[in-house]
Design a binder for these strands. Structure first.
Lengths: 198, 198
DNA sequence: TGGGTCATGTAACCTGTTACATGATTAG
DNA sequence: CTAATCATGTAACAGGTTACATGACCCA
């Protein structure tokens, strides 16, 4: 996956490993992350596979750079991957893993946990930070057909956030309801209420 | 993460590696997956760390089993993990990675891609398959305070799905709009319309 | 003079996936 | 008779994270 993401970025224009890292950090962080260590490793693998080629560019006042360009074989591989029906089955959500076991902590802590999560947003500014990213903006003007897909991923991020916030609100309401029941009527009544609900 | 998930399951009752695998497959698949190979490896690590202990149980007519129980140190580790503010930053969505580069394929293929995704649901039956899982149901009756969190994770799955479907619908509408513009007015006008939109 | 940017990477480790291997019992 | 279930794992590989290392230039 990362391999093909890097390939797509190089397809949009020649890039150094460093530039690829900045794109991941500034424009793709809402759906993928990558460290330089992994990027440089993948670049070597991709060059060995003949998907990209490297040009050494000496610079003065700055370190020299290695600029990577996509090859015809790389372009073929990119569309092959796009068409390939290969979406991985396993979806992992560490937050839900914790929620699943939250019954081990007092209710109050559970409520605080959801409040903290609701208030911590992936897009603290409503997505503007990602949307304004310079490189993507340039591309949006150059090539609207590529830009529309980029906008759709941003839209996904926004909708995901809104959904997550709404879910947190619901969870907090549910937990507060349980707390009230425990407070006023004792644990047995609370148990009955939950069981009856389903 | 997986380590702590396994720990939480053993905390809810002694289990064999095989039983842990079935719980992941039947009840936690909407937010985590795990193969037996990984489960047995983690169990060994966890036993070495003193979080769990093992009892060999000979059986007749069936293979012998190794039943794992949580230790006091394991229980301490579980609540430490629950309280620890350690949610990983990197969120990875292979589907969005593909969407991001879909501009390399013709519009028709992009539309078909979203249609296929919209129709492939994680919860083909609206979540009933997961909710009815026997082990979890038993627990829901035993311990409502644990069960409520399990229900909340199911609810997340349902909301996520609904959001994803709605997002797909929006994407399809956007792409169809672009297709109409390209068809009737040529590529330059389409470009202008997208640029003006932002 | 201290921190940020540009630019390269390595080493060690941890986590996850794929494929394989065994073998009795039970239900259709 | 065949497939599924119960129950254990190993080996090899792929993918991802953390920490470290270098070094010049520029801005406050």
């Amino acid at each position: 996956m990362l391999r093909h993401g890097i390939l797509g970025l190089i397809n949009n224009g020649d890039k150094t490993g460093y530039e690829i890292m900045t794109v991941f950090r500034d424009s793709l962080s809402h759906f993928w992350t990558a460290q330089t260590s992994q990027i440089y490793r993948e670049l070597r693998t991709m060059e060995a596979a003949g998907w990209i080629s490297q040009t050494h560019v000496p610079q003065t006042g700055k370190p020299d750079k290695n600029v990577f360009s996509i090859t015809p074989a790389g372009r073929e591989e990119l569309v092959r991957w796009l068409r390939d029906d290969n979406l991985p089955p396993g979806f992992k959500n560490p937050f839900l893993m914790k929620v699943f076991f939250m019954g081990e902590l007092p209710l109050e802590e559970g409520i605080a946990f959801f409040e903290a999560f609701r208030d911590a947003s992936v897009f603290p500014d409503g997505g503007r930070g990602v949307s304004d990213s310079a490189g993507m903006y340039r591309q949006a003007l150059d090539n609207p057909e590529k830009a529309i897909y980029w906008k759709l991923t941003i839209e996904f991020g926004r909708m995901y956030e809104a959904m997550q916030r709404e879910w947190c609100e619901r969870c907090i309401r549910e937990l507060e309801r349980l707390r009230r029941m425990k407070g006023s009527q004792g644990p047995d009544d609370a148990a009955g209420a939950i069981a009856r609900e389903e």
